[in-house]
Design a binder for these strands. Structure first.
Length: 644
RNA sequence: GCUCGCUUAGCUCAGGCGGUAGAGCACUUCAUUGGUAAUGAAGAGGUCCCCGGUUCAACUCCGGGAGUGAGCACCA
């Protein structure tokens, strides 16, 4: 005699055990039709789930985030069924839900083509029309293994065999298709209203590049056609923000075949780059970092000593000259230790913070390169803090303060924080790791922000925190990092004289805020859709004349702006004012100063922003004050402007 | 590095049974001096990514390579 309590607090009494579907039907036919699953005492279940006792129940529909997830998961099954109908020899493997969609990996003798995708989508629609019931069943491991072995599904057999214990396993059948799955799933294949297969790609079995490559089909599914449309529009919008596209349109940089993965910076792109570097230089100086510069080419023997040669030689560029082998430096830390090692250091010198805008080259695998986000030549805002073990905590905490302040200036209020802890293969005692990991954890906790733990993902020489931002496609881009290193200083012979006059090895903290300038600028371009805030904009002001008559005055205004330290250009071309406004707006120049006879006569300028706002006619000085204020506010969001 | 796709004018892209190609914008010239997102006209512009092969003939077909895109793997 279960008493069912619904989310609104109302209750329903039943004389016998009921399914989720029964309860939904008792509430109304509309809900019965919309029900995708149920949440019984917080647990997601199929609509066929039988409730014996009193319980809290929520009917899950497509309006529910969980409902959408279930829909997507079931859509992966729908696709697998369609694939096997069209290509009976294709074997199924796994098909999980991902952000905004799902994928399924198949083993098949050839790759799927875009035409196949269209055919599969059609077959999926047919199965939707067939409105097949989706039925859950439970099999023992042995039964399951023999069933899938009979079906020739070798991968499924391998998956089932790898599930530990001898627990029973749940299966879902819809018509001629059955799949191992935890569920829950939609009650029938008639529930799909809006889905689309988006792409095919290879993917390694079990994510291991030593394994064979499977065929992965990506799809997306939504509760309504409207939602699907909105999603596809969102993708289109994101494409417009792509830094590679904007970089070309705005003339910031280019790539060419002769230098794969190595950007050529153009004047406007380089302006942004330099403004950022100037900013970082002053920020770091204010935080007691000492800037240094170390060589590009360093004899291979140093990389052998540091241990990089044995681990990363495939990814290092090298140069032979005078019968010596040099590596083009892939990182700066060994060189920074060389600087530390010059002269005897005392504990009084610690912490010693060395910083370098270090130009590095790495032979990244060809398939991993991606615009400015992953390149083969880049500059890091690199820094190494030499300190004692006891100083780790405060150094990390200070660093994070600095990092957040910098990110706020660049307009990023949301940062993804991840702590990577000790991997299996590592150096150093467990005590050492305990302390270092604790110091990083404490620093993270002190921020009051959410952070993720990545157990075992730390470097072999120490744990690390990574600070990531999202690009326009939602891809997470790691920018900043701080890593504890117990290994390299000792390996390269760094030491200091302690209070008891013994020689000790310093701990080294590798740290970067922006990470690589290249990637950071890529993220910035996408974040601002190319419309850089005034402090970063390559050109802050353009002065436009209406006719040739005002040319001279425009030049004076331009000069005057430049003398005040602003980046200004004038556009005196023999074109209509509308044309020039359009062009410079598309070039995303923040301020346009329009000058006609009126302005020359009254010695003023008329100000238009790139957003199209008319700020009116004013004296040049008044405009300079406005611009100065804009520049001083950096890219801070409104909330952060007042407080800084 | 792996799978699949793509590569045609400065840019964005069409195109063709195998007979060496086209648009829009940009560029140059001329006219126009016009007050807030495109003034008009004319002109110039191509190793159809590279190297081989098939063919009377290859930008087009075949093989190899490079770059690039999506994804996978990698990321000190």
């Amino acid at each position: 005699m279960p008493l069912i309590t619904l989310p609104d607090g109302s209750t329903r009494q039943f004389n016998q055990s009921v399914t989720v579907a029964d309860v939904a039907a008792s509430i109304g036919p509309g809900l019965a039709k919309a029900a995708l699953a149920g949440r019984v005492d917080g647990q997601l279940v199929d609509t066929s789930f039988l409730i014996d006792d009193d319980a809290d129940l929520a009917i899950v529909t497509e309006r529910d985030d969980d409902g959408i997830e279930i829909l997507r998961h079931s859509c992966a099954h729908l696709m697998a069924q369609a694939v096997q109908r069209l290509f009976p020899s294709a074997q199924v493997t796994i098909g999980p839900v991902i952000e905004d969609g799902f994928f399924y990996d198949f083993s098949f003798e050839r790759a799927f083509t875009p035409d196949d995708l269209a055919a599969i989508e059609k077959a999926m629609q047919k199965i939707v029309k067939e409105n097949l019931p989706v039925e859950r069943s439970v099999l023992s491991r042995d039964e399951a293994i023999s069933l899938f072995r009979e079906m020739g599904e070798d991968y499924k057999v391998e998956i089932i065999e790898s599930i530990p214990g001898d627990e029973d396993l749940s299966f879902y059948r819809q018509g001629d298709f059955i799949d191992l799955c935890r569920g829950p799933h939609v009650p029938d294949t008639g529930k799909f209203k809006a889905f689309k297969l988006t792409s095919v790609a290879g993917a390694y079995w079990r994510g291991d590049s030593d394994n064979e490559m499977l065929q992965r089909i990506y799809g997306t599914a939504w509760g309504s056609k409207q939602d699907l449309k909105l999603y596809l529009q969102r993708l289109e919008e994101a494409e417009k923000r792509d830094h590679r596209k904007l970089g070309k349109q705005l003339g910031l940089f280019h790539f060419q075949e002769e230098a794969p993965g190595m950007p050529f910076w153009h004047p406007d792109g380089w302006t942004i780059y330099q403004v950022i570097q100037d900013y970082m230089q002053s920020v770091q100086a204010a935080n007691d970092y000492k800037e240094i510069k170390t060589p590009q080419l360093v004899d291979y023997s140093l990389w052998e000593k540091s241990g990089h040669a044995s681990k990363f030689s495939d990814e290092m560029f090298s140069v032979e000259s005078d019968n010596r082998m040099y590596a083009i430096k892939p990182m700066n830390c060994p060189c920074h230790i060389q600087v530390f090692n010059q002269g005897l250091k005392s504990y009084r010198d610690l912490p010693l913070r060395l910083a370098e805008f270090g130009s590095c080259h790495r032979y990244e695998p060809s398939g991993s390169m991606h615009g400015l986000m992953r390149v083969r030549s880049f500059v890091q805002d690199d820094g190494h803090i030499f300190c004692t073990e006891g100083q780790i905590q405060s150094e990390v905490a200070d660093f994070m303060q600095l990092l957040f302040a910098v990110y706020r200036d660049f307009g990023f209020d949301e940062v993804i924080l991840r702590l990577s802890t000790r991997p299996e293969k590592r150096v150093g005692s467990d005590d050492l790791w305990d302390n270092a990991e604790q110091a990083l954890k404490d620093a993270l906790e002190a921020t009051g922000l959410a952070w993720q733990l990545q157990p075992g993902e730390g470097a072999f020489y120490g744990p690390k925190i990574e600070y990531s931002l999202k690009d326009c496609m939602g891809r997470v881009q790691q920018c900043g990092t701080i890593q504890v290193d117990f290994f390299l200083p000792e390996r390269l012979g760094a030491s200091y004289v302690a209070e008891d006059s013994s020689r000790k090895t310093p701990v080294m903290l590798h740290r970067a805020i922006l990470g690589s300038f290249e990637r950071f600028i890529g993220v910035l371009i996408e974040h601002y859709a190319g419309a850089m805030p005034a402090w970063l904009a390559p050109q802050q002001v353009a002065v436009l004349n209406i006719t040739d008559k005002q040319g001279e005055y425009c030049k004076q205004v331009e000069e005057s702006l430049k003398n005040k330290g602003f980046r200004a250009i004038s556009d005196l071309r023999n074109e209509k004012i509308g044309f020039k406004i359009r062009e410079l707006t598309l070039q995303k120049v923040p301020y346009l100063l329009i000058v006609g006879d009126k302005e020359v006569e009254s010695r003023t300028v008329t100000v238009r922003t790139r957003e199209g706002a008319d700020l009116g006619t004013m004296a040049l000085q008044a405009f300079c004050d406005h611009l100065q204020q804009d520049v001083f506010s950096y890219g801070r969001s409104e909330a952060n402007r007042a407080t800084q």
